[in-house]
Structures are given as C-alpha cells and as structure tokens.
C-alpha cells in the first residue's frame, strides 16, 4: 500500500501503529508548534530570520548563527531516504507491529529527522537509499507523528 499525501491536505494514514506503552512525545513550549502542525497535517520546522537556515529540532535560537529571530514555516514534505534499519527488536508498544523501518530522512529544505517509512514492505529491495519520499501523518493513540512514504512514481 502506498500512501501519498498531497501537501496541506491532512490525510491520516495507518502505518506502523504501535500500541499501548509506546513512547510518545511530551512537547515543551518551544517544540509545541511542531506537534500542533503535525496534528493539522502540516510539517513545520524553524527558519532563521537572520541567516535563513532551516533547522530541526526546535530551539530558541538558530544553531548556525545564534540569532534569536526564528520563525516556524511549513515545508514541502519532500525528503530523501538517507539511511535506515529494519528493526526486529521491538521497543515497548511495538511488539505487535512486526519488523518495521526506522529511518533518517533529509528534507528538501535541509534538516534531517528520524521517522518511520510506510507504504512499502519492510524489505531491503523496497528501500533504496536516496529514494524520494513524501511526508504523511499517522495518528498514534492521539498523537500525530510525521512518517514518510515513497513518493508517487518513485516506489522501488
């Protein structure tokens, strides 16, 4: 199953679906805009008002130049697959999921982030390094997290 999510149209997919006991993020005031955006089906990162660098994870100041002039921007949701493992050692709450893909992806705008890859089988043949990805959003017991799927027309 390939789940392609057009930008700005929240469409919540079922992907990894961990159960009871899975880790959930507890936002802080600084990180809450990221999680609020995800809940609305938007992927947002911060951008520096001084040097224009996009950065992630959320901070009160730009890690490139130290400027406190930072703002939240929605990004394209386009990314590439930098690296991954197919996890057979389930974390709490992931026991029933089966082998799943934990990945590091790079957003078109530059920042990297950890995520899960959905919409392809958790087998190496389907997971080609550098393959284009598109963000999707998965509601996990009330918390929406950004996950990524192969971009349409680019499935391996």
């Amino acid at each position: 199953m390939t789940c392609i999510v057009p930008l700005m149209v929240p469409m919540f997919v079922s992907g990894v679906s961990p159960g009871e006991g899975a880790a959930q993020a507890l936002p802080t005031p600084t990180t809450r805009p990221f999680w609020d955006a995800a809940a609305e089906g938007r992927l947002a990162v911060q951008q520096c008002g001084s040097c224009e660098t996009h950065f992630f994870y959320p901070r009160i100041a730009c890690p490139s130049c130290g400027s406190r002039e930072v703002s939240w921007v929605d990004v394209s949701g386009r990314a590439t697959l930098l690296s991954y493992v197919i996890n057979h050692l389930p974390a709490p709450g992931f026991e029933a999921v089966g082998p799943h893909v934990i990945a590091i992806v790079q957003l078109e705008e530059g920042p990297t982030m950890m995520t899960n890859i959905i919409g392809s089988d958790a087998v190496p043949d389907q997971l080609v390094i550098d393959m284009p990805l598109q963000v999707a959003f998965e509601d996990r017991r009330g918390q929406v997290v950004p996950v990524f799927a192969p971009r349409e027309g680019h499935a391996a």
Partner: peptide, 28 residues
C-alpha cells in the same frame, strides 16, 4: 525523558536503545 529531544523526536519511532540507534547510519 519524554520532553527531551530524544524523547520527542526519536523514541516515538520505535528506536530501542543502542542496537537500533547506533546502527542507523551504517546503510548510508
């Protein structure tokens, strides 16, 4: 902690200690 950067931006994706975190860069 769930409100730390690891707790917010890595643990929710199912990493479970060093075997799933230290190994992540290797395929690249």
């Amino acid at each position: 902690p769930a409100d730390g950067m690891l707790g917010q931006f890595e643990l929710p994706f199912g990493v479970y200690g060093p075997p799933t975190m230290f190994t992540l860069p290797y395929l690249r």
